[in-house]
Design a protein around this nucleic acid. Sequence first.
DNA 1: TTCTTAGTATACCGACCGGTGTGGTTACCA
DNA 2: TGGTAACCACACCGGTCGGTATACTAAGAA
Lengths: 185, 185
Amino acid sequence: MTPAGQRVLDVASRLFYSDGINAVGVALVAETAGVTKKTLYDCFGSKRKLVVDYLRHRHEIWWSHLEQRLSGAVPPRTLTLVEAYLTHPDLHVNRGCAFLNAAAELPADHPGLDVIREHKKAVRTRLAELVAEDAPAVDSESVAEHIFLLIEGAIAHIGIDDHDNRAQQARQLAAALLNSGHGDR
Amino acid sequence: MTPAGQRVLDVASRLFYSDGINAVGVALVAETAGVTKKTLYDCFGSKRKLVVDYLRHRHEIWWSHLEQRLSGAVPPRTLTLVEAYLTHPDLHVNRGCAFLNAAAELPADHPGLDVIREHKKAVRTRLAELVAEDAPAVDSESVAEHIFLLIEGAIAHIGIDDHDNRAQQARQLAAALLNSGHGDR
DNA sequence: TTCTTAGTATACCGACCGGTGTGGTTACCA
DNA sequence: TGGTAACCACACCGGTCGGTATACTAAGAA
């Protein structure tokens, strides 16, 4: 990827997340990135593909951040994932989940929806692995799905509700689930 | 409200929910409702206000449906709310939560955001009342917040994930929480 | 030295955006 | 009978949408 293309992707990531995909035009993205529309279209071809690349880029950034935190974490690493999911250095914050937001405004045939589904599936899978590590005796699959609903509910309300302790609340509930010895089934 | 205005609001509710607010223009709403743009603007004044009325309308429809189901329900009525939240006759379905979706694409200064916050606050309050009814011995406030996260997580994934048993999963988890005798704190 | 790559600047395209204005047609109501 | 409210049809506004075309420049590689 060329330097101009990288700048476009960075700017698009920021603007699409903060203002919404449909509300941000390609002209604004190009201008903010200090690039002509011609260059933007030479690099990405269409806005749809730029959106797909935005979602992929966002996933890769967060995923590498997650694995980095996990590699130096002590058990229960499930809570490390919960923390990484709900707080991130200048990513994933103040406007909730970029993937849920995108899913809310993309048309049904948009290829970005596949990226969103893959992202959520990857999170669920990784979460299930970590729960199996931390609580092997219990029905870890059920607990993982329980925690997944908790963190999705929490992240969906970042930027909507006033009280921002929902992240910590989800973390505490997840911790209690890991220690409860059963899955609340 | 005049018949034409009612038709506009009904059509707008359907289109805004299914295709997204920013993706649906006023011309399409007017045309689908069999109404001229002039009439639409005589009734609502601006698209912003139409959006606000859409959200209010949606809240009122769902709320009256909820109270109707609650009035004829046997304990635990908490589960009645969970069911009403995640399944509704031709409302609230197949595209997740209209309020979360709207929050994802509205600009920060849009008056509709206040309607969204009030809706979610009302749900939380009503849920807390019902949990206090069903499980008075436990820390009902904490359990209510726990269940709230569960149903928000479940509704946020309607229309995204393939497996649609998430609603039933959230219901079962909520039932287990009510019976667990503690709040998993 | 020539050819390619990665850019720049700018103008343009048809279509659609939210919103307004004019004028005419019903129907009901005082 | 006159007025008013609730519509219709239609034309128009400035602005923005995603996307394209033309022409030019600087740098690096063959």
